[in-house]
Amino acid sequence: MSIWEYANPKKFMQTSSWALPWVAGLALIALVTGLVWGFFFTPEDYKQGSTVKIIYLHVPSAMMAINIWVMMLVTSLVWLIRRHHVSALAAKAAAPVGMVMTLIALVTGAIWGQPMWGTWWEWDPRLTSFLILFLFYLGYMALWEAIDNPDTAADLTGVLCLVGSVFAVLSRYAVNFWNQGLHQGATLSMDKEENISDVYWYPLLLCIAGFILLFVTLVLIRTRTEIRARRLKALEARERMA
């Protein structure tokens, strides 16, 4: 048993069709419980009042926006080094999901920033690198579409993914590098003292888990679609040859 077994499209299709309903079910449960708990059963914050509840969309989506790019980086590297097609297709399938997560993080951030900071948008280091990450997602998707040969497309998008990782890392750590910005530091950290009290923390954990599971569900579905589309192309090509 090795993980590379799943590089075989047939094995991947089998395993994913078995796992999909479970992952999707868990995602639904975690998201619904987490969001309902967060929106309706948490007290008001001492400074922000009920505006604090947007945290249940903003933080998980921002985390996913960065982590999906990291996932795309890993799968792209696997493709570039080991040439497994499923890996490249998984990266391709993840990009639109990551793009939407980035958009959600930007929009909820603006809605949150307006009453709290007093502005929708500022050219703060963290906000700016997040916007660039969003543009990188768009460029990545466009590059996949722009190249006809699927192997060349996978190669070039893999390299683009490597370059974009700079901004994925920057949007995570910009607050630490340049501490004179508008956006506050990390609320959630494993090692530091507690910043967020437990009543907000548990539903937030559930929402984060829900977003991760939702992402896994969507990527599995989309990768399966990509594999099928490629099979179809192969069949059509064979048809033309005959």
């Binding site: 948490t42 007290p43 008001e44 914050d45 001492y46 400074k47 922000q48 009042g49 604090v52 945290i55 709290m116 900071w117 007093g118 502005t119 500022e122 508008l182 506050q184 530091g185 990390a186 609320t187 910043n195 967020i196 009290s197 009543v199 907000y200």
Partner: peptide
């Protein structure tokens, strides 16, 4: 123009 800066602590009002 004045913007408020927020820190990373969240606590319920009652507490």
């Amino acid at each position: 123009e004045i913007l408020a800066k927020h820190d990373e602590s969240y606590m319920p009002k009652e507490v």
